[in-house]
Structure formats: C-alpha cells, structure tokens
C-alpha cells in the first residue's frame, strides 16, 4: 500500500459539525441557562445571608445582586440567639437514625422479595410500592393520631419512626433493582461453596451492592432532612423542631420576615446534604448507570 503523506490536519470525520459557533449555540448556551436557573436561588440565599439589614430592601442605593458590606450578624444571631443549633442537632439525629432504620429494613425486604421467591413475593413488592404512592399530606392525619396514642408526640422518636413509612418503600424498590442485577450464579456458587443465606447476604450481596446502598442512603437521608409535613405536625416545642420547620415557624414572626436569618438558616441547613453528595457522587452515579460487573 502506498504511504499517505503526513498532514497537520487534525480533523476527524465529522469535525465540521463541531465548529465553535455551533458548539456555543447548541451546548454551552443551553448549559449556561440551565446552570443559571439551578444556581441562582443558592446565590440569592448566600448573598442574603450576609447582607446587612439596611441593604435588604433598599434597591435604590444598593444593587440587589451583590453585597457591599458583608456581615456575619445574621449567622451569629441564628447560632447564639435562637434554638437553631438544637434544630440542626435534631435534624441530624432524626435523619441519620431513620435512614439507618430504613436501610436495614429495606435490605431485608428487597433481598427477600428478589431472591427468596416465597409465595406472594411479587405481590408484596407491589404493595410496598403502593404504600409509597400514598402522599404524606393524606397520611399525616392518621399518623398523627397514632403518634399521639403511642405517646411519642413532640419527640424525636415521632419523626424517627414515621419517616421510614416513606423511606422504606423507596429504598426497597431501589435495592430490589440493584439486587436483581447481581448474577444468580454468584449466589448459587456461594451456596455450593458452603455459605448460608445469611453469609450470602453479608459476604456476597451486600459488598456488591455498596453503590446501591449508598444511593439509597443518600436519597433517604435527603428525604428525611428536607421533610416538612410530619415535622410540622408531630413536633410542637421549639427545641424539638427540625431545621426546615424551625426556620419557617420561628424566624417568621407574624408578618415580619427575618430574611437574613432565614437565609442563613437555609444555607447552613443545606450544607450537610451538599457535602454528603459530593463525597459519594461517584458511587451514586455508578448505581444509577451501571449494574454489577464481573
């Protein structure tokens, strides 16, 4: 074959589709709009949290889009003059414990439905899913009665025990999908190797499901962290409230909105979730896009 003369043209087949103007128009511009829409509320929240009060409503002398003399007054007020630290602590405890409870229950439920193949397994799966479809805005009334009767009203336990009602169905379905992607032969192989059901679950299935467990955990954690209706209904005293409820009920006095403190509270309250996501984003993505590979 004849030698082809080397060229300094680095173009590859379809390069003409990728001219710079075209890329800006089809890729970067829509992406920029998207990012702007997504991030603007956070920006607004962040600048409001550090804006002195006199700038908040004075649009004539100060631009609403940035801060001239940033201050930590709102945050100091929030941390030292309100019960915000207690709300934070409550939210952390409630979210962590209810997520843990939901994960344990979901692992067992999902594994049993997916792999033990008992009579009615499919039906059980379906019922669990139906339970997820009932909206909390309907469920909170009967649940409130139960919470009252059991005597855990206005305590962390009220939330820790009610959050799993929506966390478990969700996590169970997510994990069922994940367990289904684990090849059956692995479990049979383990069975022949002498493992018991429990050992198969703990030594084979769970280690392989770590990405699934992490994304179920993140979901559950975020859902409980942001939960509003139950927290609003089942908690009455200020020191037992969670962040979403506390910020709204304690920092809005009548028709006076303490915007600075409100936004500081929202900002601080969203940080833990952001940190959690950024740690596990790889696992999270892999569990959404890929199954167990040998």
């Amino acid at each position: 074959m004849a030698k082809t003369a080397p060229t300094d043209d680095h173009s590859e087949g379809m390069d003409h589709f990728d001219s710079r103007a075209r890329r800006i128009l089809t890729l970067w511009l829509p992406l920029a709009c998207f990012v702007f829409v997504l991030l603007f509320p956070f920006y607004w929240m962040a600048i409001t949290a550090i804006k002195p009060n006199y700038q908040l409503t004075d649009y004539e002398n100060y631009s609403p889009f940035w801060v001239v003399e940033p201050t930590l007054r709102h945050i100091r007020y929030l941390l030292f003059e309100t019960t915000y630290p207690a709300w934070m602590w409550n939210t952390i405890v409630v979210s962590v414990v209810s997520t843990a409870l939901a994960l344990v229950a979901s692992v067992f439920a999902a594994y049993a439905i997916e792999r033990l193949r008992f009579r009615g397994a499919r039906m059980t799966g379906l019922l669990i899913f139906l339970a997820y479809l009932v909206p909390p805005s309907i469920l909170f009334i009967p649940l409130a009665v139960i919470v009252f009767q059991v005597g855990i009203f206005d305590s962390k336990l009220a939330l820790i025990l009610t959050y799993p009602t929506f966390l478990i169905p969700f996590c169970t379905w997510l994990l069922m999908g994940y367990f289904r992607s684990i090849p059956y032969e692995l479990e049979e192989s383990a069975l022949v190797d002498g493992a018991t059901r429990w050992q198969i679950l703990t030594k084979i299935v769970l280690p392989l499901s770590v990405p699934g467990l992490i994304s179920a955990g993140i979901f559950a954690f975020t859902l409980s962290w942001n939960e509003f209706i139950y927290a609003l209904t089942f908690i009455s005293s200020s020191e037992n409230k969670t962040v979403p409820v506390g910020v709204l009920t304690e920092l809005v006095r009548g028709d006076i909105y303490e915007w600075g403190a409100l936004m500081s509270g929202a900002l601080l309250g969203s940080l833990p979730v952001v940190i959690l996501y950024s740690f596990f984003v790889d696992y999270y993505v892999s569990s959404m896009t890929g199954a167990v590979k040998e």
Partner: peptide, 13 residues
C-alpha cells in the same frame, strides 16, 4: 461437591 459455572461466577469484590 464443587461446581464450575458457565459464566465463572467469580466474586467480583
């Protein structure tokens, strides 16, 4: 007994 499976069934982790 010991069994060798078609798709090997090695534990990936």
């Amino acid at each position: 007994i010991a069994m060798v499976f078609q798709n090997y069934a090695l534990y990936p982790h």
